[in-house]
């Protein structure tokens, strides 16, 4: 009886770290999957990921491994769904605002839809009910309104500025 050894794929990050992962995990990365679909005869050379840091890639690989194992369990879907939720919440919690945005950029480049949805919701949860100033700081946006223009919008939607949470940074 022969056992098949899962094929390994090597990914190389922007800061020149190499990660060897199972093919199934690599195929979770849309960008990598597209590369192999378009180049079926690709050699075993490491795949360069010039927009992804090793810190982000290791988080992403852990996420893909975990969600793959949940999907593999399949039949007890309700507990798997719950575990997935807990994992996702923990993932958001362990990232500060800046590293969350960095992770979104990497996940967007690698085209991992479910993970991107989770992270986008995580950012939305951080800015919901927050002040305009907090959001400007969060995204590094400069205010290009004159004080008069800004006052006009504030007056128009006065009620939307009521009951906003205090900034926590």
């Amino acid at each position: 009886m022969s056992t098949t050894v899962p094929k390994k794929i090597t990914l190389r990050t922007a800061d020149n770290h190499e990660f060897e992962v199972d093919e199934a995990v690599a195929m979770e990365l849309g960008t990598v999957k597209t590369f192999f679909d378009e180049n079926p005869d690709a050699t075993d050379e490491p795949i360069p990921l010039p927009n992804v840091s090793s810190k982000c890639l290791s988080t992403i690989i852990e996420y893909c491994k975990f969600h793959l194992s949940l999907r593999a369990r399949g039949n007890d879907s309700s507990s798997a769904e719950e575990e997935g939720k807990v994992y996702d919440e923990e993932l958001i919690k362990t990232h500060d605002n800046e590293s969350l945005v960095e992770l979104i950029l990497a996940v967007n480049y690698l085209n991992i839809k479910d993970m991107l949805d989770t992270l986008n919701q995580g950012v939305a949860d951080r800015i919901k009910n927050k002040s305009v100033e907090y959001v400007r700081r969060f995204f590094g946006i400069e205010n290009d309104y004159t004080p008069e223009e800004e006052a006009e919008i504030r007056a128009q939607y006065e009620w939307a500025f009521e009951g906003v949470d205090p900034d926590d940074d």
């Binding site: 919701q121 800015i127 959001v135 309104y145 504030r154």
Partner: peptide
Amino acid sequence: DILRCLSVNDLLRFKCVSKFW
């Protein structure tokens, strides 16, 4: 993709963030 997750109330307030927003 982030803004679509927010409430209308938040979005009306965030019109003040910048002219682009």
